[in-house]
Simulated assay, not measured.
Amino acid sequence: MIKDQFPVINIGQLDEFKQEDILISRFAPYLAVHKNLQQAHKHDFYHLVFFTDGAGSQTIDFERFEVKPFQFYFMIPGQVHHWAFEGHVDGYVVNFSGNFFQSFLLKADYFEQFSFFSGNANEAVIEVPVAMQADMINLFEKLLRESEDKQRGALDMVRLLLVELFISIGRLSAPNEQKQVSPYNLTLLKSFRNLIETNFRSLKLPKEYAELLYITPNHLNALCNDLLDISAGEVIRNRVVLEAKRLLVNPELGITEIAGQLNFSDNSYFTKFFKKQTGSTPEEFRKQFITKRS
């Protein structure tokens, strides 16, 4: 049985939880209630924060970002994150479960079109331009009112406002998209990533995934190089490294146990793999992370 290395927060466990599958709050009072969430943890729900005031840092899957006013942070279930704020911090927070939109949207994969829901930490932080800042604040104020007033159809109005928010933020990256990508290739890449998420512990070679996708390894590699600018093998290795980091920061897990969970034949092979990918041994990474957090 695989041990979970971080506290996993369920949306129903939150003290101010009032409505099924959704929580909307100003960030300052939310932070005051949930000071314990400043330590590294995971959610089983989607977590959105829009900062309007404050400074410090937010770390998502071991990628550190400087917190600034008018920044969005999007996190999907399972990502590891923690805060390190400086002084007063405020804004808005929205937590919603995967079920919240299930009966509302016919497309089960609707959110997969938005890069900030990809699970890639570097795509999860978005700065809002000055021209949009007032509109974003107004939208969040509407979300708060609908959440608090509980008028007829309030939850559906919340869903509509959130979809409006996601589309508006998604458009921010549209002018920078240079490549015209076919729907087939996007679907193929999504299928590859989904297969990695399910099988990264046991399947570590591109040819194994290519076989499951009914394409050649060369086709899969060309796809990843074209859309992601990295090879298919690197996509797989990056996911293994991320999981290794998540496991390593749990002091209760030994290196040998972690190597076993990730299906490495022995501790030595795992150590060589990890050092080649990160520049640090597993023990060095563990010490560095614990030192940074203390």
Rank of each mutant, 00 (worst) to 15 (best):
7 P>K: 12
148 E>Q: 13
67 V>D: 10
40 A>M: 15
23 L>A: 04
217 P>A: 08
33 V>I: 13
117 F>T: 05
19 Q>V: 03
81 H>F: 08
101 F>T: 07
77 P>I: 01
94 V>N: 03
93 V>R: 07
132 M>T: 01
70 F>D: 06
71 Q>T: 07
122 N>L: 13
114 F>S: 01
184 Y>W: 02
106 L>E: 15
28 A>Y: 04
203 L>R: 07
45 F>T: 02
117 F>L: 10
146 E>R: 11
77 P>G: 10
232 A>R: 01
235 V>K: 02
172 L>E: 01
253 L>E: 06
35 K>G: 15
242 L>Q: 12
46 Y>T: 08
288 Q>P: 00
180 Q>W: 00
85 F>V: 02
155 L>M: 13
156 D>T: 13
44 D>E: 15
243 E>S: 14
56 G>H: 06
264 F>W: 06
63 E>L: 05
70 F>W: 09
158 V>T: 05
31 L>Q: 12
43 H>F: 11
109 D>R: 11
123 E>L: 14
268 S>P: 00
17 F>Q: 14
156 D>Y: 11
183 P>K: 02
266 D>R: 06
218 N>I: 04
140 F>G: 00
236 I>Q: 04
242 L>D: 08
251 P>K: 08
206 P>W: 08
165 L>I: 01
251 P>N: 07
154 A>M: 06
288 Q>G: 03
166 F>L: 05
11 I>C: 03
129 P>W: 02
93 V>I: 15
65 F>G: 02
50 F>I: 02
229 D>N: 14
32 A>F: 07
287 K>R: 13
87 G>T: 05
210 A>M: 07
210 A>R: 07
2 I>Y: 09
255 I>C: 08
221 N>L: 01
276 K>W: 00
133 Q>W: 04
214 Y>E: 14
106 L>V: 09
166 F>S: 00
161 L>Q: 11
251 P>L: 05
266 D>A: 08
4 D>L: 12
50 F>G: 06
223 L>W: 06
101 F>K: 04
49 V>M: 15
18 K>N: 10
272 K>M: 06
197 E>M: 03
58 Q>N: 09
240 V>L: 13
132 M>H: 12
266 D>P: 00
101 F>C: 04
243 E>R: 14
255 I>K: 15
227 L>C: 06
9 I>G: 03
35 K>H: 12
261 Q>N: 04
203 L>Y: 12
292 K>S: 14
289 F>M: 14
61 D>M: 05
63 E>G: 00
292 K>A: 15
150 K>D: 06
147 S>C: 04
291 T>Y: 11
273 F>P: 01
71 Q>F: 01
163 V>S: 04
253 L>V: 06
241 V>H: 05
115 S>E: 15
125 V>T: 03
10 N>Q: 13
160 L>P: 00
251 P>Y: 04
164 E>H: 12
271 T>M: 10
81 H>Q: 07
162 L>V: 13
94 V>S: 05
183 P>S: 06
187 T>F: 05
216 T>N: 12
135 D>L: 03
200 F>Y: 15
30 Y>V: 01
287 K>L: 13
222 A>T: 09
239 R>F: 11
6 F>K: 08
9 I>N: 10
79 Q>N: 05
132 M>R: 13
1 M>H: 12
93 V>L: 12
118 S>C: 10
292 K>V: 03
